[in-house]
Amino acid sequence: MSDIAIPAGGQAHAHASPHSRHLQHHFHNSAQQFEASKIGMWLFLVTEILLFSGLFLAYFMLQTRHPQAFIEAHHHLDRSLGVLNTLVLLVSSFTMVMAVQSAALNRIKATLIYLYATFGLGGVFLFVKYIEYSHKFHDGLLLGNLFSYKGANVPGEYLFFSMYFVMTGIHGIHIIVGMGVIAYLIWRTHQRVFSSAYYTPIDLTGLYWHLVDLIWIFLFPLLYLVS
């Protein structure tokens, strides 16, 4: 059993404690409920991995068939912005895991600060993405038959931008959803719902947020560092 994963609610079992209201009747105790929730979250993350694996496979297929087009097309991406967003997401993963740990240690004020930081870093990521997207919209570096960039000199560059927009777009939607859930957590933390006895939603959101970071770790070299 994980050291960090045992909520103190385990000891509140069968006693009328203020935290027992979180325990649903079909679970033996809070710790069991927490572990079961986590397994459910991991199963959901598996479906997310399979969703993105289809996109990665499509990328590999197109990239190995049109390496010249992909190398030429990726020069339109700003590598420094890609590095910046990678670092932003890594730091946001750190603040998220700190929020989870703070909740587990019953440091609610620190939990709030870290949740706000994670939300803010998600916003920074989206803002950088917005700058990149608007630049590509302006130049006509778009997906599929919307591609209208006039300076293309290798056939098939639009294939790269099809993959770029679909992959970063779906990833960006995940960031937006994650920020929405984190906003909800901030609201509920302000209401003093979470404590070391019950912080399952923060922990599960953390797992989701780390997976979104994990997917970006693969997207970054594929899209920004083609060689």
Binding site: I4, Q11, N29, V83, L90, M98, Q101
Partner: peptide
């Protein structure tokens, strides 16, 4: 496997691990 009533619950502080991890991730980037 679950702490019994009255038993001290050990929630370890992993901050050092997390800091080391983020630094390692920066280096790997």
């Amino acid at each position: 496997s679950i702490p019994h009533h009255g038993e001290e619950v050990h929630t370890h502080n992993h901050t050092k691990w997390y800091v080391a991890n983020i630094l390692a991730l920066f280096v790997l980037t």
